[in-house]
């Protein structure tokens, strides 16, 4: 039994220490934003934020998460109150099938938290580990820059300014 902190809440998890975080999120906590793409750390669909850094949850076993803060897309915002990153992706219509998008948003969010005005090259380099089979890359890039601008403007009230630990 271990305590897993997800989106600010403690959960008691009864699973082996080598269980990938992705399985726990989806199967036990019913947080389905993170997707299973490859299970090998090669596609990025499962990306979540752990202590401020984007990680592949499919190759992150529970044993690594003692005392750490996990943030999933559900923790950033909701349909009613989307976080800037979510709003930007919607406004740019960046999702085609959407399978890669939660992972893309999580890594972009982690990037924007440490670098609020990334250059296009920086965004591309950061998102390089992520695959999108639909080919919406250009929209995704625009969405990340839009999110950077949204996070920067005063139109957002502080509580809607999505931030993850």
């Amino acid at each position: 039994m271990m305590t897993l902190k997800v989106n600010g809440q403690d959960h008691q998890i009864d699973a082996d220490p080598d269980t990938p975080l992705l399985y726990v999120l989806r199967d036990d906590l019913k947080l389905n934003a993170a997707k299973f793409g490859c299970g090998l750390g090669q596609c990025g669909a499962c990306t979540v934020i752990v202590d401020g850094k984007a990680v592949f949850s499919c190759v992150t076993p529970l044993v690594l998460l003692e005392g750490k803060q996990v943030t999933t897309l559900e923790g950033l915002g909701s349909v009613a109150a989307p976080a800037p990153i979510q709003r930007a992706f919607m406004e740019e219509q960046a999702a085609q099938c959407g399978y890669c998008i939660a992972g893309m948003m999580m890594r972009a969010q982690a990037l924007l938290q440490r670098n609020s005005k990334p250059t296009d090259d920086e965004v591309r380099a950061e998102l390089a580990p992520h695959l999108c089979r639909c080919g919406t890359h250009m929209r995704i890039l625009r969405a990340v820059h839009r999110a950077a601008r949204l996070m920067d403007t005063a139109e957002l009230t502080p509580e809607r300014k999505g931030s993850a630990q």
């Binding site: 082996d16 220490p17 080598d18 269980t19 990938p20 299970g39 090998l40 750390g41 190759v59 992150t60 076993p61 529970l62 044993v63 690594l64």
Partner: peptide, 15 residues
Amino acid sequence: HPEGAAIYAAACASC
């Protein structure tokens, strides 16, 4: 090495 073994199983063995 229980911790190393668990990490290996989830992070390395799949490939």
